[in-house]
Nucleic acid binder design. Sequence first.
DNA 1: CAATAAACGATCATATATAATCATTATTAG
DNA 2: CTAATAATGATTATATATGATCGTTTATTG
Lengths: 261, 261
Amino acid sequence: MLFEEERKRLIADYIRQRGRASVQELALQFQVSESTVRRDLRDLEELQFLRRTHGGAVPVLENDNNEPSFIEKEDRFQQQKLAIARAALSLIREGDTILLDSGTTTYQLAKLLRGFQRLTVITNSVMAAQELANEKTIELLLTGGTLRPETLAMVGPFAERNIASVHVDKLFLATNGFDTEAGLTTPNMVEAAVKSRMIRSARQVILMADHSKYGQVSFARFGELSDIARMITDRDISPAAVQEIESAGIDMTIADQGGAA
Amino acid sequence: MLFEEERKRLIADYIRQRGRASVQELALQFQVSESTVRRDLRDLEELQFLRRTHGGAVPVLENDNNEPSFIEKEDRFQQQKLAIARAALSLIREGDTILLDSGTTTYQLAKLLRGFQRLTVITNSVMAAQELANEKTIELLLTGGTLRPETLAMVGPFAERNIASVHVDKLFLATNGFDTEAGLTTPNMVEAAVKSRMIRSARQVILMADHSKYGQVSFARFGELSDIARMITDRDISPAAVQEIESAGIDMTIADQGGAA
DNA sequence: CAATAAACGATCATATATAATCATTATTAG
DNA sequence: CTAATAATGATTATATATGATCGTTTATTG
C-alpha cells in the first residue's frame, strides 16, 4: 500500500516517462479508485507537474522549444536569429568566460549554451539567466542593475560597475543600429552605457546582428566599428554591405539557415 | 531503551534508507507507542529531515534535477509565511526604499508589493524580481551576483559591492537559524556574507522568520540579535521564546493567520 | 447537429490516521 | 530525597483519505 505522496510522485513519473496515461490505466496500475486518481491528477496539475486532459493526463510541456513567450512571438527574423546564434555557438570553447548582452538574438544563443561542461556566463539579461539557471555546469553571474520591464535587461550603475570589474574572453553583443558612419547605436541611453562598458571588458567583441540592423541609426551611440572583431549576420545581408563591413577590418560570418528560408 | 534524540535520529535514518515507513511499523520497530512516533515525525518534519504523509513518512527529495521539487512547491508553513508577509507589508510606506532578502517568506512579501504607487525595491532574489518585473510603479533593482540554482539567489562579490553602495529605509531579512546564543545563522557562507552586508546597509532591520527557525543554529553566522529592530513570526511561537526575544530588545510582531489554522 | 457514451465533479459514508487531552512514568534540579 | 519538569502511552474527539453514487459536462460519431 502506497502513501498518498508516494502515489502522486509515481503518477507524475509514470506520465512523464510514458508521455500519457488514462485515468483507468492509472487506477489499475496503482490499485486505487478512479476518484482518487482524479484527485491526484487535480493536485498534480495545480503543482504544474502535468496537464489534465479528458480521460487522463499528459506531461507538462518543457519550455525548451514550445510555447514561445510574447516577445518571441512578436519577434521578426526568428529563423535568422537562430541561425546567427548557432554560428555564434561554434565560436565558444569549453572553459570560456563569456559576456552575454541582452536582446532577442543573444537570447537564442543562451538557449543553445546548455550542454557545455565548463563555462562562465555573465549577463545583464534576466531572460537569458532564466534559461541557464538550472544548468549545473555553467557558472552564471548576473550583472545586477535596474530592471527595464520592456526587455528584462539590467542597466545602470550597478551593472556598469560589475562589468567594469571583470574581463572576459568573448562578448556577444546585440545592437539596434549598425552603420558605417554612425557606428553602433541603440534607443536607450542607459543601455548604451552598459554596452559601452561591456566592450571595454572583453578581449574579443562579437556582434550578433541580423541584416535589418545594417544602415540603421538609433539615438545613443555606444561604440564604433573598430571595436568589433567579428560580426555574425544572416544571408539576407547585401553583398555590398558585406564588402563595406569587411573593408572596415571586421571578420564576417554569414549564418546559414540550413536550407529553410 | 533509547533516548528520545537517538530514536529520532534512527527514525530519520530508517526512512532515508528504506524510502518510507508507516507509523505502525516505526512503533513496532522502536518499541514505542504510535503517539510517540507521531510526535517524533512532527519534530523531524519541522526540521526538514523528512515529510509526513497520512500513515507514515517519506524522505525529503534531493532536487538533483532542474525541476522544482515537491518540497518547494508545497511548503508546509505557507500559511504562516503568508501571514508573516502580510504583517511585514503593513510596515512599508509609499515612497520607501526597501531591501528584500531571498527566501520563501520574503518571496511571499514580494507578491504583496504590487499596488504600491511609489516604491524602490532592491533584491538579490530572482524569484522576487520575476514577481515585480512588470510593476511599472515599482523601481526594481537587482543586486547582481553569482546565481545559486537552488534558491535563485544572487550572491558573491557582485552582490556585496552593490549592496554596500546603497542605503535603504528597511531591510526584510530571512534566516535559517535564529538563536539567542548563536544569533542569526544560515547554511551557506556566501549567502551569509550577502546578508551581513544587507544588515549594514539598512536603517531598520526586520527579520521575517516562522516559529520553526527559533532555537535553530546553522553553519554560517551573519548577524546577532542586536542587529534586529523587529521580528515578525507566526503565532505558533512559544510564549517563552517571545519573552526571551523581547528581553533582547527586539520588537515582536506575531502575525495572525486570520482565523484559519 | 443531435444522440450517446464516456468522463467528470460534487457529495456522502466510512474507515483510518491524527491531534488533543490527560494520567502515568521517567528524568532532572534543588 | 522531594519537587518540578519532561517524555510517554492510553483515550477520545477530530480530521483526512478514499471509494461509491449520481447528476452534469464533454467528446465522439452517425
